[in-house]
């Protein structure tokens, strides 16, 4: 059984069709990249997987671990192990990052039948993960994403992923807005989380990220469809040729 199985997915926003029949299968342990020009529907796909409101599923199915993902509420999906690293993480004033993460982790652990971590265990665990991402205590204490730079927000997303240990991680443009040093830190963080039980979907505009996180499969999304799929070499080809051949194609 595939971990994630998307079949003939059609999605509309305000009566405008954005995704026009996506088929995609991910097995546990795989890393797939979805690339595509701006406006091709990449972020729509990530939001639909996470269950954001405002996206009408007009046809198709998504099964996660054999279950109907679309029938689940966003928090239920999260508790089942679906994680979205947001392209633009929202600021939540007054809520300390650590408080937030602890609340989320304990919600997940409850679902998984694990006991809640006490404050000391939690702190130790998070600090270890944070250190790898070069996130200091000061940043952990601050209100969630408030006043964070673009790079800090992205590192914070990867930290949350590391702490919440998802089964399916969707990373939406996690490379955007990062300089090369920050990109390496984030990529190392992501690579450390690769495991036979976990699948990842990398959504990106540029090939650059894939130098550091090498995917098993690459898909090109254009005009709401997967226009081409291939191995990691497809990304290099796109880097050379650009998205030109996919842009002309009318819907």
């Amino acid at each position: 059984m595939a971990l994630l199985e998307i079949k003939n997915l059609h999605v509309a926003v305000d009566d405008r069709e954005i995704l026009k029949g996506i088929d995609l299968t991910l097995d546990a342990g795989e890393v797939h990249a979805i690339m595509g020009p701006n406006g091709s529907g990449k972020s729509t796909l990530s939001y639909v997987l996470a269950g954001r409101e405002g996206y009408a599923i007009t046809a198709g199915t998504i099964r996660f671990q054999g279950k109907d993902l679309l029938a689940m509420a966003p928090d239920e999906r999260a508790r089942k192990g679906v994680f979205l690293a947001f392209q633009y993480p929202v600021e939540i004033p007054g809520v300390a990052g650590m408080t937030f993460l602890k609340t989320a982790l304990n919600a997940l652990r409850k679902e998984r039948g694990a006991g809640e971590l006490d404050a000391m265990q939690f702190l130790k665990f998070v600090r270890a993960q944070a250190k790898r991402l070069e996130i200091g205590d000061e940043m952990l204490k601050r209100a969630l994403n408030v006043g964070f730079s673009g790079g800090e927000k992205k590192r914070n997303e990867v930290l949350q992923m590391a702490v919440l240990e998802p089964i399916l991680a969707v990373l939406d443009e996690t490379d955007s807005g990062l300089d090369i040093d920050a990109l390496k830190i984030v990529a190392d963080g992501v690579n450390a989380l690769r495991s036979p039980e976990r699948a990842m979907l990398l959504i990106t505009h540029y090939q650059r990220l894939l130098d550091y996180i090498v995917p098993d499969r690459v898909h090109v999304l254009a005009h709401g469809r997967i226009a081409k799929s291939g191995g990691k070499e497809l990304a290099l080809e796109l880097e050379r040729k650009g998205y030109g051949e996919f842009l002309g194609e009318a819907a």
Partner: peptide, 17 residues
């Protein structure tokens, strides 16, 4: 949505915010 994506229920999210 951000809170719910991290596994918090609607009520927990409201309470937290």
């Amino acid at each position: 949505f951000y809170c719910r994506q991290r596994g918090l229920s609607q009520e927990e999210a409201v309470s937290l915010i």
